[in-house]
Simulated scan of single mutants.
Amino acid sequence: MRTQVAIVGGGPAGLLLSHLLHRQGIASVVLESRDRAYVEHRQRAGMLEQGTTDVLRDSGVGERLDREGLVHHGLELRFGGAGHRIPLTGLTGRTVTIYAQTEIVKDLVARRLADGGEVLFEARAVEIDPSAPSVTYLRDGRTHTLECDYIAGCDGFHGVSRPAVPGLRTFSREYPFAWLGVLADVPPSTDELIYAHHERGFALHSLRSPQVSRLYLQVSPDEDLAAWPDERIWAELAARFATDDGWELREGPITDRAITPMRSFVGEPMRHDRLFLAGDAAHIVPPTGAKGLNLAVSDVTLLARALIERYASGSEAALDGYSASCLRRVWRAEHFSYWMTTLLHTDPHGDGFAHRLQRSHLDYVVSSTAASTTLAENYVGLPLTR
């Protein structure tokens, strides 16, 4: 087989890149190691920056997003028994939207297949050649080779793309806590996200839909999921969200639960020869700042623009600048995610002095317009530039 752009990974980054290229007449083949059902039901975060929703709408895949997405104009920081609203739109003029990543993937898969796109599920890439660009993959018990002009590595943290970059510099940080995330069939107890700091640990109340809630608890990285029956989860959530005015948390059947470790990771550069890394293949952020999916979208949007320019004019200037352009945004998001994480989580190794500093910082963020604006500006996402 031969195509112009081989895309390794059929998550939202790879599918969106294929869609953006198709709109400009550039051929691509998406190789995804899992089957379609798995990809379309893989639970991931779903907070979209305005720049991300703009990209989806402008590319013609935002119809269901506009119909079902929950637009938010603020968020709440909760600590010391009280809530403090950060007016995102009032401070920045921008919004965020809650729309599940699973639904984005379903929208993109349906669109690519309807457009005649080549999305090969259960096609596991095993070797990448960035210089004589090609991808060797296994499918239906046979070995295949896909030759191409360029390769986009959108295959996540554990994929084969990043190891194909020689001399890669890596930067990482492991955190002394993890998230226990649950999906519950119960209407949300809030209209906007609640980020709670509590001496027992961090908690987050998010939304999946008007009928489904997504909630998180800070736990230790080695926590046993079996030690958390429904009753314990709801009791701990209620304790961490408790306010002096008697706010109540709605409870319902928990349909999904998982423990996710937290890390920060960046690999530089994001390009080697004809191979370009995007999304989790190049960087990981702790989920506190809700930047993972949004960074992936900004990566592939920049890569699509660069490839479109290359095929339209023959110029590789934008491709040459791809890594540097992405990394400027990546490091800003890494810092914001680290800042939000250390601001809100309870450090199990921290002393009283550290905890007092943390509380002072929280008080400052909610009482200072300048500090609130810094949080809001980074949370809604910086404008996507070249």
Rank of each mutant, 00 (worst) to 15 (best):
D35L: 10
N378T: 06
L375M: 08
L319A: 10
P348L: 04
D149T: 11
E199Q: 10
G159E: 00
P287K: 10
E231L: 05
L113K: 11
P210Y: 07
S213K: 05
A37S: 06
G352E: 15
V266M: 08
G156N: 11
V160S: 00
L362R: 07
G60W: 01
P187D: 01
F121S: 02
T52A: 15
G141H: 06
L319M: 09
Y216I: 05
R94C: 08
L237V: 04
H335Q: 15
A178L: 02
G9N: 11
G90N: 06
R34M: 13
R232D: 00
G159I: 01
H158V: 05
A27G: 11
V135D: 03
G69A: 00
R200L: 05
T260C: 09
G201A: 03
L88G: 12
L70A: 04
I259C: 12
E40V: 08
S172I: 02
S360D: 13
F276T: 09
E192S: 10
R162Y: 05
H73D: 14
P221I: 08
T374W: 04
G51C: 06
R112Q: 13
H345Y: 09
S298E: 15
R271Y: 09
Y338C: 12
G25L: 05
L375N: 04
E147W: 01
H158I: 09
S134R: 14
T255A: 08
A324N: 03
L357E: 03
R208Q: 00
H72D: 00
Y322F: 13
P286H: 14
L15S: 07
L295P: 04
Q101A: 11
Q50D: 10
A258N: 14
L319D: 07
L120W: 11
S313E: 09
F121Y: 14
M270K: 10
P253Y: 11
R386P: 03
D140P: 05
E174K: 03
R263M: 14
E334R: 13
R57S: 06
G141P: 02
A318S: 13
E334W: 02
S323D: 01
T373H: 07
